[in-house]
Computed example of a mutant assay.
Amino acid sequence: MDLLERLVTLFAENGYAAVFIALLLCGAGAPLPEDITLVAGGVITGLGYGNVHIMFAVSMVGVLLGDAGMFLLGHHYGARILQWRVVARVLTPERYAKVQEKFERYGNRLMFIARFLPGMRTAVYITAGTTHRVSFLRFFLLDGFAALISVPIWVYLGYFGANNHEWLVMWIRRGQSSLWALGGIILVVVLVLWWRHRRRVAREAGRES
């Protein structure tokens, strides 16, 4: 966890602003793990360099702004954004086609799932914008709901484990696996509710006819 230690040092010296900027870079596809960045932000509050509740708020804003920025860039420039050298490193034409295929299969639910898929978030959010199949409000609500699950887990984990490095590393590893499982469970619940809603609508339409 050398990266975690380096981020803790950087954030302790520069405070909330450094965490905020780092999270914007995460949203832009920089090779910086968002979960480790959030944990580092929590750690410095546990060490007395800030307030954990303020750190949570700052982290939420940084995460959502970074994600929204990618969506809006895709929405404004469309597929032309794939020609940008910086974007092409994150979203190759092959990857773009693959994400589009997943949108066809999972629809808007993919935007919620993406938050729990490290390395896929930026590609999914840019693609969501380029497709013009979803409004910004829907995107923001889905992404915000997912962030309300993941962001506090990482920030408060860092806060409570600030003085116990071994315990913290253990729970980071467990947390990474648990978030995948949690995201899967929530997806299954959403699909079941959607399926039941469709059946109810179909039954009501059958009675009316």
Rank of each mutant, 00 (worst) to 15 (best):
W171N: 07
G41H: 04
R207A: 09
G41A: 12
C26D: 07
K98E: 13
W154P: 02
A79P: 03
E101K: 08
V155D: 01
A205F: 12
V63C: 06
Y106K: 12
R121F: 00
T9Y: 04
I172C: 12
V43A: 06
L7F: 01
V61N: 09
M111R: 05
L168C: 04
T122L: 07
L157A: 06
T45N: 03
L4V: 05
H76E: 14
L25S: 11
Y77N: 09
L65R: 05
G78P: 08
G184Q: 13
R95C: 08
Y159I: 05
F145N: 02
E104H: 13
V134K: 01
E94T: 12
A28V: 07
A18G: 05
R203D: 10
T37D: 00
L110S: 02
V201L: 11
A162D: 02
G50E: 05
R95I: 07
L110M: 10
Y156V: 10
R133I: 06
L25F: 12
A162V: 03
M55C: 06
S178T: 11
L38W: 00
A128V: 12
T131R: 07
G184L: 15
V87I: 15
H165E: 03
Q100I: 04
V151F: 01
A88S: 13
G144M: 11
G119D: 06
A181R: 14
Y106T: 08
G69N: 13
L47Y: 02
A88T: 09
H165A: 02
